[in-house]
Write a protein that binds this DNA or RNA. Structure first.
Lengths: 340, 340
DNA sequence: TTGTATGCGTTATCAT
DNA sequence: ATGATAACGCATACAA
């Protein structure tokens, strides 16, 4: 049925006995071509198995229908679900996705960004928290871009993510409602945006409950499993034990669980622990982690919708979108015992 | 420094005061151009920030320097590391990677395959175990392709993966050396290639040790956590308890661990359990899983090397590459107790 | 409604 | 050693 070489528009034109212009029109502006001609063309397309050569098309049009997604780590448990959201939305609008895996290497990021210069990609989704360094020197024109998950530092690129503060607020209220008062906040580094925002949610909740600042226990932490372990040790040394640990993310929470278990405590009987993000492991660990779920697919959806919108106008709209995340109640929180 | 529009070869030529032909040569055949001219050109390139328009290049050349990687599930813990191997090797040869996420949907696979027709991709890495259905109807010419991780059913596409039989053999020998004799094999479905191969390793090891076939316990299973749980129940009902469970993969092993733990046993004191693949969770679960590690990055490397080779010849070589995997000893195996 | 002809940015052939 | 030019496949302005 088909030849060794992919069919071109010319092959179709010859078989349909029309000009290539008519074929092109029949495809892109069917209403501008006579019904009978259109049918001939469609038949010829079916016969040849013709597919428009995307490269030639983009070259001619000066823009493509691909969106470049830059991610430092494909293995990130957040990534694959966000990607699904991105893809579904893109597909619905006739766009395709091109994934650039930078492995955190700015040089690779730069490499992929060349796609944009070649018009191989019409827009950019940034999953990296930054524009690959050196891109500004390459060209002054940054194409329509949207950041997901974390905002791009020092830029006006619109950003789609969750409302960290609202999420943290939900969590702290859950803990307070469970009867906890001495609740430690285990962070991931004072300067980080997520830290600041989630901490703000913690404070707001504590404020609303009338718990004085001096009764709040804050550990800076670093957001890793090891950091969670360390936080436990610090608190034991300081002898300022809380009844609950509200952790900046699931990794830290897992560290806390591990640290507490290693010291011979039983959870959640002796301590309550909460995470944030809802990574896959969160439901595996014992006790399963009460956490805040990242609405990953929704983030992907919104981000792509935003990008495609600004592609239409040609004019990016700088409004961030913050989705309010859900509390996922599992087994790691109970009422505090009177024991201590 | 740079204009709003990406610089073209013509811009460079104008600034360097040479023809575009010379610019192209200076880039691709530097030895064919006078040193002084070359310097002028390089300077002009630096000034303009010129980057070759990959689309125009591919259009003209009839081939691109991108490799399409088709994967059903980016979130697969195996994928990201294989990808790293693929990328590194590709990069070393001046190729880039384009990831097509099919979500298991043949239609999407087909969509991405159009890239090949458009010469947007020069070759194909299949992570899917099959060619997207319908592609054959689209074109008879399948481009150079290599399958990773699992072979493509009913095709001659070369395949790079691990030597399942050798891996399983390593595992069974480890178990035997630890003193186990009644070792159950928990599979993932009789027909599956991995099942057949790993079972072969199990049998070979048992044979070599002189353990008669009637003393071998085989559970067909399905390779999931739930399947592992079920296998435990089956064996309890049949009252043919082994001292060790050799599972077809880590998921099944985790299921076995969960099932055994739920019944009140302590591991590895009461039973030894082994996995296969070494997924991230394998080291998290308690007890940490003794398993066979997939050399994922190596698989990626080899696969891409093979693909690029066959791209050179234009002629795919049909030799599969099987890497012998390593045994990872963790905490889930001890000598059997005399208890039972 | 349809066809002719031009150009998108490259590379490669053929002159010079 | 260098330059002029054709062609890759397509979309579209313009002509018919």
């Amino acid at each position: 049925m088909s030849n060794s070489q992919p069919a071109t528009i010319e092959d179709v034109a010859r078989i349909a006995e029309v000009s290539i212009a008519t074929v092109s029109r029949a495809i892109h502006n069917p209403e501008k071509v006579a019904t009978t001609t259109r049918q001939k063309v469609n038949k010829a397309i079916a016969i040849t198995g013709y597919t428009t050569n995307a490269m030639a098309r983009s070259l001619r049009m000066g823009r493509s229908n691909m969106i470049l997604v830059l991610a430092p780590d494909i293995g990130d448990p957040n990534f694959s679900n966000i990607l699904i959201g991105l893809e579904n939305e893109a597909r619905a609008h006739g766009y395709g996705i091109l994934i650039g895996h930078t492995q955190g290497d700015p040089e690779r990021g730069l490499e992929y960004l060349k796609f944009l210069n070649s018009n191989q990609a019409a827009g950019l989704i940034l999953f990296t928290g930054h524009i690959p360094f050196g891109y500004q020197a390459m060209t002054t024109r940054l194409p329509p871009a949207v950041a997901v998950f974390e905002p791009v530092f020092g830029s006006t690129i619109p950003y789609v993510g969750i409302d960290d503060t609202a999420g943290a607020r939900k969590m702290i209220e859950h803990l307070l409602a469970s009867g906890h008062r001495r609740i430690a906040f285990i962070g991931d580094g004072r300067g980080k945006l997520g830290h600041i925002r989630r901490r703000a949610g913690y404070d707001a909740g504590m404020d609303a409950f009338g718990i004085p600042a001096r009764d709040r226990i804050i550990v800076e932490g670093d957001g890793t499993i090891e950091g969670g372990r360390l936080a436990v040790e610090q608190l034991f040394v300081r002898d300022t034990l809380p009844t609950a640990f509200m952790c900046i993310n699931d990794a830290a929470a897992i560290g806390v669980v591990l640290g507490l278990t290693a010291r011979g405590y039983e959870l959640p009987r002796d301590f309550s622990v909460t995470g944030f993000d809802d990574v896959p492991q969160a439901s595996f660990i014992n006790p399963s982690l009460t956490t805040i779920r990242q609405p990953r697919t929704a983030i992907g959806n919104k981000a792509m919708a935003l990008l495609l919108e600004s592609l239409g106008d040609g004019m990016p709209r700088p409004d961030d979108i913050l989705i309010i995340p859900d509390l996922i109640v599992r087994g790691s929180v109970t009422a505090p015992t009177a024991k201590r």
